[in-house]
Design a binder for these strands. Structure first.
Lengths: 335, 335
DNA sequence: TTCTCTTAGTAAATCGTTTTACTGTAACGT
DNA sequence: ACGTTACAGTAAAACGATTTACTAAGAGAA
């Protein structure tokens, strides 16, 4: 491994000079000849500065951490893609940690306290508010993604309520009244906000809210399948549509409906929250309400970079209002 | 930020003593009273060792890098999950970099040369063999995952040829003769090996190989869709089944077949390579040949950890032979 | 001749740990 | 009384980079 010292020796200058030259110190006065010698030494010795040494001295690692619940959820894959696209350009790296429902929850704080990362993206749904508050107490730079917490200073979230309402309104305009909601985990704020949108839409359209039609699920296909099965077996009203709080739940529900011998959308319509590339290759192609998750990731990345650049902590609260209804074939027009 | 020095001061001992005690130096002789004082200082000051300083001194970062082509491919999500499960237990972290077809390809080497990571997992399909060989030249610890390269010393791959053959044999046993192959990128070795399995199965069963039935695709739904459409429009033989070299391609092909007005599996059967959680919620549920990608990731992680533990480079070549046919409803028995 | 500027650098401290090689003191055996 | 051993630590040099504060030599001005 080549160090600054080696380069300095070969170029016949002091380490200081090499470092200052390579870092473009504006106060350094240096002759062309010396520059050339240093550059040559760097090239022949293939010198690359050591990241740990740099980090130790500067207190910056050029690395951010990302905490997500699960890699196997395409929602997070899109968020990561967005984050990465920004970080790439800025020479930052991304350290990922997944933290499911049952994992040791405080371990992610080590990332901060050990100084492994300069900041943290928290997209984990299973962290409690007070676990997140620790970051404030430590005064550690962070941005919440796709989740809120009571005291959060910085976040990028979607306007889940509005998007859910928009989706519901589409269903209602298509003539549906008896709409079930496969809600996400109601311990998560996204789950709660989507439920709120569901209820708002019904209320504003003078449709009664039936508790029997609301079922809490996890964010997995299996959970969506089970909940839908349960609903079909239990509820014998004239349910004509289902609004699922996540793609994976929607996929699971579709399978359950088919296994129950019903046809989508003829017997029952399905609409899913969030859009992924597989949404349009299910059968029938799934109608969804799409929020740009890549944009969400990208904005969070820019925000964290910004927080790091300013000395004083700025408040940064972004709510992505935009959503698109991706109309495909899983919702039947009853009129 | 609390340092060793602060702890030492508070406990009234030398920095050395604190460090050696906290690291369980077996040669350190220390009294119970001193231990207690140090422990107390650590607790009240909330001391956590600084990762950069440690890395600088020890030359170890406790971090591995992972290079994949794309986060939005569920195959890699499963591999990451497998890697992470092992690294978690060992206190290692994972730094991820995605590198698509068109990205600057050598940047991943910086991870190695800057000393940011102790080793590298390379699952990138778009790196050429000689770009990987650089790691050998640098004598940098690495493990290839789900890809081979001519000179690779360490890898974990699946026996793609065998698995593909097994899948094909199932199709053939079910009475299919005219089987198309949506091959993956033939510039990738997995693509080539799966094609080989396809051909082997046909040859061994005395079925002619028809070049018209083999179409190269990318590893995306869209590409699978396009290729299948093309095939359906072009080929007017009695094709009864399609063997897709990847899940995503299989999904795309299913959509194309339906859009063409044909029924799966009645008009045409589909079998996909690799199994993901969405495979059983497509319509009809997709029959696949499954290789444990989590196992692949986990074994690669253990391998890299091993390589780091031994001083001399050991050869490590693992080929996962096991595969399971996940029989669902997308293949029709013609007999 | 002395002073000031400019040019072209350099020495040394520092970031927080780890590690090697010591240093005292006291007790013990002979 | 002397050497040895056990006990309980400590001083100082790394690791590789950055940065502050200097220096040394020569040119030009007064």
């Amino acid at each position: 491994m080549t160090t600054l010292k080696d380069v300095a020796k070969m170029a016949n200058v002091a380490v200081t000079t090499v470092s200052r030259f390579l870092n473009n110190d504006p106060n350094l006065v240096i002759s062309e000849a010396t520059k050339k010698r240093i550059l040559e030494a760097v090239k022949t010795l293939k010198y690359v500065p050591n990241a740990s040494a740099r980090a130790l001295k500067s207190g910056r690692t050029s690395t951010f951490g990302l905490v997500i619940p699960d890699f196997n959820n395409p929602v997070y894959s899109q968020i990561i893609t967005g984050i990465e696209s920004v970080l790439n350009e800025e020479g930052y790296y991304l350290l990922v940690v997944s933290m499911g429902e049952n994992k040791a929850k405080k371990s992610y704080l080590r990332l901060a306290t050990e100084g492994r990362v300069d900041g943290l993206f928290v997209a984990a749904t299973f962290l409690d508010d007070d676990e997140i508050e620790m970051l404030d107490i430590l005064n550690f730079p962070y941005v919440l993604i796709n989740r809120l917490s009571s005291e959060a200073k910085n976040y990028v979230v979607a306007d889940d309520t509005k998007a859910a309402k928009k989706a519901m309104n589409y269903l209602i305009e298509s003539g549906h009244r008896n709409i079930a909601h496969l809600a996400g985990h109601l311990s998560t704020d996204t789950g709660r906000r989507r439920l709120e949108g569901y209820k708002n839409a019904l209320t504003e359209n003078n449709i009664p809210i039936l508790d029997d039609l609301i079922i809490e699920t996890k964010f997995s296909e299996q959970s969506g399948y089970d909940a839908m099965k349960d609903l079909l077996n239990r509820y014998d009203g004239a349910m004509t549509a289902v609004f699922a709080a996540s793609v994976r739940v929607a996929f699971g529900a579709m399978a359950a409906i088919r296994d129950h011998g019903l046809k989508i959308p003829d017997d029952i319509s399905v609409l899913g929250f969030h859009d992924i590339s597989l949404s349009n290759i299910t059968y029938p192609p799934l109608t969804t309400i799409k929020i740009s998750l890549e944009e969400m990731g990208a904005r969070a990345a820019r925000m964290l970079l910004n927080i790091l650049a300013e000395e004083e902590q700025i408040e940064n609260k972004v709510m992505i209002k935009n959503s698109q209804l991706m109309i495909r074939d899983s919702v039947k027009d009853l009129k």
